[in-house]
């Protein structure tokens, strides 16, 4: 997806390329429809009692993660991106999880809060 032939190049090659993009367009529309469906599902699930609020939060976050994953993989082309981008994101993901997880750990390690 990164290196389209320039418009001035061989028309045949361009035709092929445009066809490739056309295929992607179909994928985008499908993912869009999927996201809308999942939005409806999230709303619906929030009115179902899964026993505890924690369970409800967990399920809603799972659906949200699926949606976010679809956006990131398809719309943001992360399904087929260059290695450098993955590297940047792996570190970011690691540190943002560290931020959540370590603060959470510290939180529950304060004797006064127990």
């Amino acid at each position: 997806m990164n290196n389209p032939p320039d418009i001035s190049q061989d028309p045949k090659e361009y035709e092929e390329y445009a066809h490739g993009v056309q295929k992607h367009v179909r994928a985008y529309l499908m993912v869009g429809a999927l996201l809308l469906t999942f939005t409806a599902i999230t709303v619906a699930l929030s009115y179902v009692d899964f026993g505890t609020r924690k369970a409800n939060i967990g399920i809603a976050m799972l659906v949200a993660t699926l949606k976010a994953g679809a956006v990131a993989l398809v719309f943001m082309h992360l399904a087929a991106e260059k290695r450098l981008i993955y590297r940047i994101l792996i570190f970011t993901g690691f540190f943002v999880l560290g931020l959540f997880w370590l603060i959470l750990l510290a939180w529950y390690d304060y004797p006064i809060f127990k």
Partner: peptide
């Protein structure tokens, strides 16, 4: 809120289609 979510998702679709249109000139 649901409507706004749908609108934002829709706009994500349109912007990626805008980009694809440019790629197809």
């Amino acid at each position: 809120g649901t409507m706004n979510t749908a609108i934002l998702i829709l706009s994500s679709v349109t912007v990626v289609l805008a980009w694809a249109s440019l790629k197809m000139r």
